[in-house]
Amino acid sequence: MLTPRVYKEIPQRYRLEANKCKKCGRVNFPPRLVCPNCGSQEFEDYRLPTTGKILTYTVVRTPPVDFKLQKPIVLAIVELEDGTRIMCQVTDLPPYVENYDEIIKIGAPVELVFRKIFSEGEAGIHVYGYKCRLI
């Protein structure tokens, strides 16, 4: 049962809530209690921007069971326009692609969208969150 775990992470998954170190300005996503950059424990609320570019990506041909119906799934590390990096799935791609390098280039601009990440089987909850798609 995923419900309690998913509930806890709603601010991050739905609204991209991060935190920003008051001392050095580093943005942490997910939010942290200790700044990994300067050790400060003082933060301000911060919302991630929703556009960025692909730093690297892969096509997962053998995903875990929750993602089997969507296979292959494409995942990327995206650098958002403020420099923060997140990992997310690349969605809205053609369902069958011979050569992904031809449609996804490192450096390609993307926007974050709100999507269903997976469903907990036939009867369980739907889990929502961010993905990205090529602009």
Partner: peptide, 10 residues
């Protein structure tokens, strides 16, 4: 688990 494998990455 929360920000990588949750997304289907292996």
């Amino acid at each position: 688990a929360e920000y990588e494998s949750f997304l289907g990455i292996t």
